[in-house]
Amino acid sequence: MTLADLVDALELQVRAGRARLEREVTGGYASDLLSDVIANGRPGDLWITLQKHVNTVAVASMKDLAAIVLVNGREPEEDTVRKAEAENIPVLVSRLPAFELAGRLCGLGVGRMG
């Protein structure tokens, strides 16, 4: 499943990285602790988090994550959007809480292929 498919299926808002929405999502990772994502995130993961500050982009880029999804309708900071565009990391926004978004992604089959 591609990011674009998920954007459609879950009504996600795209805030940065529109050019890379054709990327395949191979798994999901939900965490608000950067050190944890650095340790356990896998390339191609969709990262679900409440953290909206700029450091998330560095982590996503370093771990080659597919995208960052902010939950609970949280909007990324300006810095974050700017850095994400520069690093070509898609930043998405969902109105759902993390639990619900992870639940629906699993329901769509994300996370069972990697």
Binding site: D32, L33, L34, S35, L50, Q51
Partner: peptide, 8 residues
């Protein structure tokens, strides 16, 4: 932040 706080 790593302790779960400071998220603004």
């Amino acid at each position: 932040r790593e302790l779960g706080f400071g998220a603004g």
